[in-house]
Nucleic acid binder design. Structure first.
Length: 470
RNA sequence: GGCCCCUUCGUCUAGUGGUAAGGACGUCGGCCUCUCACGCCGAAAACAUGGGUUCGAGUCCCGUAGGGGUCACCA
């Protein structure tokens, strides 16, 4: 490998960009960026029945959102059919591959026969290994694989891996319609694109020996491999749609920060030391390496993702959060774009919520007219006769405030003095007021809340609450 | 079933023959306090199992169990 490594992410566009794929992309991207190398995006769309254009777009979207930009591509395998054909022909010429005229039905019969005879797995009989060519008949092309011996390679994360050739058969590499099969397309592409390290999910370890054999047949130097452990669901089964939220897009919609996603994903399987959990992009670009990737599968933990998201919300300013908060509000039917209160809202709620979606729900009542329904329990406890004098006193005081720019400090001082003069704790005053202002017992500091709601709306809400008491 | 890979608190992990097995999420308790959070302090919680090797094993070897992956004219 040169000092400018070339890596790639090669998804097949058969659905959304999911968590596992995103992490694979991320690790490749990090390694390439960290070493000043090249990151290539390649779409493996040779399975025409499952590939869709929407999926291609979803992959682009997801990667862009996460900030994983690519230097080359997107290449598409369906644009490169000539290249595969040419490579396959080359193998046939050297007698390292051959045309196979067995039909699917025949293969199926062979399989059945072998299994019935007690074979533990099917292996192509090699019937066409020596058959003469019939250029006009439809056929697939198979590579001639060694029938004994073994292939070893040193995986960057898993260490030495050995595969016996007994378990490898003469793979089909090209279908009658000229579409390559995975193990061939990937090899031809990785070789011709000059890929130095292939980092992919460890569901591909068993393909690696076959691929190395194909590299060798083709006369190419195999790259190095890094097989990343799988991501599992709570039940230790491979993470899939039935575990719920697995697409990157879902997390964007749910109000996660892209950087939090990156931070969490990288920690799923990779660690720097015995204590660091939080990584900025700069940190990762400096510290990421394949040799610190763990070898065992990891269970996806939404709670920890939330915690990390919360952390990065805390690191963000209200200003940075305002726009994404407005997006989330829009989904709730609240048009707050450009509202000057957004920043303050984000500032006050970033410590109190885990996601931007949650923040929007909480912020909603501050932007609406009136509080809607009071929480039953809060209403019963605080909107009671004993609260009336306090609420009235505050209303009077608020009427003296300027309509804009409430002096929070002054107001707080007044409120403390007021509570003291009535010989009650501040809570006796603040809680009923809180319920009046936001409909429930939880909110930021009471004076911050008043300022947020605004003088006039606060007065209206207090009056509404007084009505309720009667 | 064959083959490949994996196995430290519930979860993510540190650990590269000698540690009181460390951190984080979550959980529980406390502090702070106008509520809710944030923050802070504290607690419970792990080396799958049986054999070796060694003066000494979470760390090395073998077996067992468990988990995952893979065995296509899918990727």
């Amino acid at each position: 490998m040169t000092d400018k490594p070339r890596l790639r992410f090669a998804p097949s566009p058969t659905g959304y960009l999911h968590i596992g794929g995103a992490r694979t992309a991320l690790f490749n991207w990090l390694y390439a960026r960290r070493h000043g190398g090249t990151f290539i995006l390649r779409i493996e769309d040779t399975d025409k029945s499952r590939s869709t254009e929407e999926s291609v777009e979803a992959i682009f979207d997801g990667m862009r959102w996460l900030g994983l930009d690519w230097d080359e591509g997107p290449y598409r395998q369906t644009d490169r059919l000539d290249i595969y054909r040419e490579h396959a022909e080359r193998l046939i010429e050297k007698d390292l591959a051959y045309r196979c005229y067995c039909t699917k039905e025949e293969i199926e019969a062979q399989r059945k026969a072998q299994l019935e005879a007690g074979a533990s797995q099917f292996r192509y009989t090699g019937r066409c290994r020596k058959r003469p060519d019939h250029p006009d008949q439809p056929c697939v092309i198979r590579v001639r694989m060694p029938q004994s011996g073994e292939t070893k390679f040193e995986d960057l994360v898993k260490g030495a891996i050995t595969t016996s050739h007994e378990t490898i058969q003469d793979e089909v590499i090209l279908r009658p319609d000229g579409i390559p099969l995975y193990n061939f397309g990937a090899v031809v592409d990785d070789a011709t694109m000059g890929i130095d390290i292939v980092a992919r999910g460890d569901d591909h370890v068993n393909n690696t020996a076959r691929q190395i054999l194909i590299y060798q047949a083709l006369g190419y130097e195999p790259p190095r491999f890094a097989h990343l452990p799988m991501i599992l669901g709570r039940d230790k089964q491979r993470l899939s749609k039935r575990h719920g939220a697995v697409s990157v897009t879902w997390y964007r919609e749910a109000g996660y920060l892209p950087h939090a996603m990156v931070n969490y994903l990288v920690r799923l399987g990779w660690s720097l030391d015995d204590k660091t959990e939080i990584f900025s992009l700069d940190d990762l670009l400096r510290d990421f390496s394949f040799d610190r990737v763990g070898q065992s599968a990891a269970i996806f933990d939404p709670d920890k993702l939330q915690w990390i998201n919360h952390h990065w919300m805390m690191e963000s300013s209200g200003r940075e959060l305002a726009a994404p908060l407005a997006e989330q509000l829009a989904k709730l039917g609240v048009d707050a774009h450009g509202d000057p209160r957004l920043e303050r809202l984000a500032e006050l709620f970033k410590a109190r919520t885990k996601t931007l979606a949650e923040m929007a729900e909480r912020a909603r009542v501050y932007l609406s007219e009136g509080v809607g329904e009071y929480q039953a329990k809060a209403k019963r406890k605080f909107l009671v006769e004993a609260s009336r004098p306090h609420l009235e006193a505050i209303r009077e005081r608020l009427e003296k405030e300027p309509p804009e720019g409430i002096d929070e400090c002054g107001l707080e001082e007044w409120m403390r003095e007021y509570a003291e003069s009535r010989s009650v704790g501040l809570g006796k005053v603040a809680q009923p007021l809180r319920v009046a202002l936001v409909g429930g017992t939880a909110s930021p500091g009471i004076c911050e809340t008043i300022a947020l709601v605004g003088r006039d709306e606060s007065i209206r809400r207090i009056e509404a609450a007084l009505q309720v008491i009667e």
